[in-house]
Design a protein around this nucleic acid. Structure first.
Length: 288
DNA sequence: CGCTATGTTGTTCC
DNA sequence: AGGAACAACATAGC
């Protein structure tokens, strides 16, 4: 589930566990998980210490005392686990960093969508990847420029890491729910007030999620996430968790941009298309 | 077995 | 060119 709040939580975890220890070795069970070849990776890192972390969106950067920069991306299911003894190696720890002193850091990759590699610099990587500003730091003005006037729907726009870095599928639904914006609203249909609410919601949702260390079960009860979380379980009483936490009406699940999308049709009504559409449509045929 | 999944990237088509 | 739809990646879990 690594969206920005999880990666921020992993960053703090890394800081708390894995800094300032000499790296003795790196075990890599599947080389497809590396974006830098194994020889270069080990040659560049072994013998050095991790000294600093930085996060942009869902990317975690770790700098060594020799100035090398390693980037971690957690894909759809990655994580970190610090441990000591071999027998405590967590399942899916397909990359393991060994530190002098006997502790190890496991990079968990259940589905092998995760990646580790070296980059020349954080800035260069962000530029090459076209990463937008981190969602925790994005300004209203920046968001305004990235959303207004766009033909695409607001949900795919917010999911685009070039718009803002760090927003994933659950977060974007939560943000749009709290901002009371329908996920299929086009960029050009958003009012300034809409974008201001979206901006505020991004802040609230991310800060709340980080505060709870991304443990969704502990989020406030008026968060949409609970509907999705429990709806996943075929054993749960689905009825009880498919209602809007604010108005009590039935939530809807649709697909937007190929992604499952939860929203409340009452709190997040679709905008009237004709009102906001650019001058182009011939409405003469609309008689009925 | 069949289906879905938190992300990213690339292709293909309009 | 922008945008949308979809597949692919590899695997787990229900």
């Amino acid at each position: 589930m690594p969206e920005l709040p999880e990666v921020e939580t992993y960053r703090r975890y890394f800081e708390a566990t894995s800094l300032d220890q000499t790296l003795l070795g790196i075990d890599v069970a599947d080389h497809k998980l590396l974006t830098t070849d194994y020889g270069t990776l080990t040659q560049s890192l072994i013998g050095s210490r991790f000294v600093r972390t930085h996060r942009i969106g869902k990317h975690l950067f770790i700098t060594t005392d020799r100035g090398q920069v390693m980037v971690m991306h957690f894909g759809m299911s990655g994580g970190l686990a610090y441990f000591r003894d071999q027998e405590d190696t967590p399942r899916f720890a397909r990359i393991v960093f060994h530190f002098a002193g006997g502790f190890r850091l496991g990079f968990l990759c259940p589905r092998k969508f995760e990646r580790i590699g070296l980059v020349d610099s954080i800035e260069g990587y962000a530029l090459a990847k076209g990463l937008g500003v981190d969602a925790l730091e994005v300004s209203v003005e920046n968001l305004m420029a990235k959303l207004s006037g766009k033909k695409a729907m607001v949900k795919p726009l917010l999911l685009d890491q070039a718009t803002v870095a760090g927003i994933g599928n659950w977060i974007v639904d939560e943000v749009l729910f709290q901002a009371k914006v329908h996920p299929e609203t086009r960029g050009y249909q958003l009012t300034e007030a809409d974008i201001r609410r979206i901006h505020a919601a991004i802040g609230v949702v991310l800060q709340t999620a980080i505060h709870h260390e991304a443990a969704y079960g502990r989020f406030p009860t008026d968060f949409l996430i609970h509907a999705r979380e429990w709806d996943d379980s075929p054993y749960a009483d689905q009825r009880a968790h498919t209602r809007c936490p604010r108005c009590g009406n039935d939530l809807r699940v649709i697909r937007v941009g190929g992604r499952a999308t939860y929203f409340c049709p009452v709190c997040q009504p679709a905008v009237a298309r004709e009102a906001a559409e650019p001058v182009k449509a011939n409405r003469a045929q609309a008689a009925g």
